[in-house]
Structure formats: C-alpha cells, structure tokens
Design a protein around this nucleic acid. Sequence first.
DNA 1: GTTTTACTCATACGTTCGTTTCATTCAAAC
DNA 2: GTTTGAATGAAACGAACGTATGAGTAAAAC
Lengths: 209, 209
Amino acid sequence: MATPDTRTQILDAAEHLFAEHGYRGTSVRAITKLAGANLAAVGYHFGSKAELMAAVARRVIEPINAAQCAGLDKLLAQTPDPPVGELVEAFAGPLFDEMPAGDEGGARTSRLIVTILSDPAEEARSWTGPAEDSVRERYLAAFARVLPGLSPEELAFRMRGILAVTAVDRLEVHQQPSPGCVSPVAGEAARRWAITFLTAAMSAPPTQT
Amino acid sequence: MATPDTRTQILDAAEHLFAEHGYRGTSVRAITKLAGANLAAVGYHFGSKAELMAAVARRVIEPINAAQCAGLDKLLAQTPDPPVGELVEAFAGPLFDEMPAGDEGGARTSRLIVTILSDPAEEARSWTGPAEDSVRERYLAAFARVLPGLSPEELAFRMRGILAVTAVDRLEVHQQPSPGCVSPVAGEAARRWAITFLTAAMSAPPTQT
DNA sequence: GTTTTACTCATACGTTCGTTTCATTCAAAC
DNA sequence: GTTTGAATGAAACGAACGTATGAGTAAAAC
C-alpha cells in the first residue's frame, strides 16, 4: 500500500492514542513519534493539539452521524411510529460499527467516542456542530412520539443512557482484569447485547411521580 | 464550625477537583490552593498525587460499598430470589446517594465515581481492593440466580451497563448546554429514573444467539 | 527549660509539556 | 536554470508539572 501522507498518519496515531489515554494523557510528542512524523508537523497541519483533537473527533463522528441519520430516514419512510427496538438499533448501532475489523484493539471507535464524550478536558468538547444536535433532536422527537407519557426530562435521561451504555466497553478496558470478571467481548456480540439491553430500558413505563 | 485539619481539607478539595477535571486535569497546586494549604502538604500527608487520589477514592467508595453490601444482605434475608428491581435498587441506589444535599454541584459523588472508573490515567485505577470485588461478585451471583438463561458474558455486560448508566449525569455535565437539550436534574429524580431504566434493562430476555 | 514531635512554609530541582522558530528539502511552475 | 511554495527537520522557548529540601513554628513530652 502507498504510505499515506503525514497528515493522515498523524490523524491515525492521534485517534489511537486519544482513545487509549485520553486527551491530557496523550502528548504531541507521542503522537508524532507513533506517526513517524516530526514534532512540528502537528502545528503545521492542524495548528494546535486541541484542533488536532477536533479533527480526529470529526473524522470519527461524521460517518456515524450520517449512518444514524440515514437509519432514521429509512425507518420513518415506512411508518411514523417505528418500534422502539428499531429506533434504538438505528441510533446505537452505528456507534459500534465503523471498526475496520482488522483493528488490533477492536472497538476502538466506540472507545474513542466515549473518551471524547466523557473526557474531563475542555478541549475534547469543543468540536460538536449543528449536525450532531440535529440528529439527536430528530431521534428525540421520534422517541417522544412512540413513547407517549414520558416526560421530556425522563426521555432526555434515557437518551443519555443510550450513550452511556455504549461506553460500557470502555469502563471495562480501563479496569485491570480481576478474578471472576469476564473479559470484554468483541464488537458484534456487545452491539447486540447493548441493543437488547437498551430496547428494554427505553420501553420501560414512565417512572411514577 | 471548627475548621477541619489540613489533611481533610486537602481531601475535600481533591475530591471536588478530581470529579470536575479528572486526574490529569487537576494539579497538586490547584488542590492545595483550594484547600488553603501549602504545596508540600500533599507530599507530607499522602506521599504523592497518586496516593492522594487513592485516598479520595477510598473515602468515597467505602460507604457506598458498605451500603451495597447491607442492601444485598437485607434482600437475601427475606428471599433467595429477590425481584430484579430491588436488586438493581440495592446496587445502583447507593451510587446516587451519599451527597450531603447542600452540596453546590449536586451529584458530585456519582460524578467522581465515574470519573475514577473511566479516567484514562492509570493512577486512577490502582485503588480497588478485595472488598469491591467481593460485593460485585455477590451481586453477580444474585443476578445470575434470578435471571436464568442469561450467559455469564451477557450478564457481565449488563452489570457494566448499570455502572455506565450511573455515569449519565457526567456525560451531560461535560457537554455545553445546547438548545433543545433538557438540563440535568437533581439527584433524586435521576436516581429513580435510573432504577426504572435499569430494572427494565436487566429484566430483558437473553439476546438470541 | 529543654527536647521532641508534628506540621507548615517558601523555595528550588528536574522533567515534560505545547508551541515556535528558522533552516532545509524537493517537486512543480515559470 | 531559476524561482516558488508546500512540507519537513532539528532545536529551543517559556510555562506548568510532581516532587524534594531544609528552615521555621508551636504544642506536647520529659
């Protein structure tokens, strides 16, 4: 294969390291070393470490957002009230896919997403654009329609719960393996378990007030 | 009130800052400044920043672990097969409590726990002891008993899902408020929503293989 | 009164960080 | 062949970090 250009190699290396060690735990020097590039290349191609992080996030999130959007379009083209399970799958499914399947760590993408979403560093939260908000609002409206009786606040809580559960792999990865603890599992099984888990959770009747 | 000793003030300040900015995002200087203590006091009282983090984690986790353990004891004293919802409440409930109710940020404790569990820094994961493992294994066995037909792997996945959902607040706190997004809610409502959400999720039939 | 102990303080050390600078390379444009 | 502009390279900058040091303080022990 033709060796990709420096910019792409830096993006790849940064994606890998950010997913594993977070924003603050990854130094520009480590990124450029892994990428086989010079230290100054980050400044030249991206401007700063924070802008590099934003570029990494965009590259990962954009296809996922597109898949979520397309999945919702497809569902709504059939019926205005799709089953909850299909809404969950259209929303959460793309968060598990998008992994090249030959990847060394597996589940690198979902790990990176949750790293980004939960990273305590402010720089990791400055990349979201109107596209992300738009998709979330469309799903919010769809869920509100098929889950009547649920208050907007509780629905918002459950939507955040979906994101949190996709973070499950990450919680485990960062824990040292302990006796009696089953090791995390490859992406496909986790994806289907998550959809089972989340479909039941989303379908729960509203909490009594 | 009598001003607490330096050691306690450092613990309080560190708990606050670690919960908000993570391990790497919090400097020893910021901790001692907020605590009104000298920079060297951390080294004197705790040895190092990593040991301070461990002390903070232990102080937060220990009462939670005790509550989880007591809750399970109480349930199992009545019947060997408690309802799933009560198991969920006994396990997840203490993760939401333990907040002094006059706290400025609310939900500081659960945020700290998830910060610790998901912090990419290695130093944040070196404090767990046999007590934590023991409680988790006991709940694992109880859930396995009342959820027959669930493979150990999927059960482990769902247990991790419980932890992840208690992290829900944290995901939101780190996002800038956006239009159409409902703001996070005080601890009590979130706790009850989480139990509704998780009880339904845990009760889901096993994923088809 | 002296010594001991526990603690706090200002300060400095060595390292690592993100970023910048400037010289150099090299293929395309002229 | 010369010029141009994008890209890369080696080196250094100032700042912030965790940690260590040694003097200073005050109350308890003797």
